[in-house]
Amino acid sequence: MEEDFNLVLVLLIYALPVLLALMAFVIGGLIERAHFKSIRTREAAFAHYPAVPTCSLDGDRVVGEARLVTASIVVSLDYFKRILAAFRNVFGGRVRSYESLLDRAKREAILRMKEQYPEADLIVNMRINTSQIGTTDGRKKGMGAVEVLATGTVVRYQS
């Protein structure tokens, strides 16, 4: 009887992280796919509204207004991808889970800048900063959450 109980306990201890990882894999994957889909449709809507890192304006047009614009997003990996990234640390090489995380955060931050001024013509001097804002789970391991901040100067030409 007691052995049975111990077996259940041992199973629970070992099965729980696996279950969590499985749950994170399914839900995290769904969230990421939905986010990428929304990013793609919104990017298509802003196709004629560029955000450029240079500071050049159309010479023949008069600037009506120029204002600072900032937008940010804090993102984190799901539990499953965090485990994958930790394994990647052993062998080295490309960490794809972080690549897609940062890609999606950067594109989202740029879109949020544009959404603040939907009537403007372009964003010049666009800069992107990525910073780690500490481990969210209180442990020292892992990258925790990452903040992506996009800044720029939004320009509207006189019509």
Binding site: I27, G28, I31, V74, V75, L101, T136, A145
Partner: peptide, 15 residues
């Protein structure tokens, strides 16, 4: 955020 950290994505509270 700890719960959100499990499934990943945006941590709106921190943003």
């Amino acid at each position: 955020a700890g719960f959100k950290n499990l499934v990943g994505g945006e941590l709106k509270g921190y943003t």
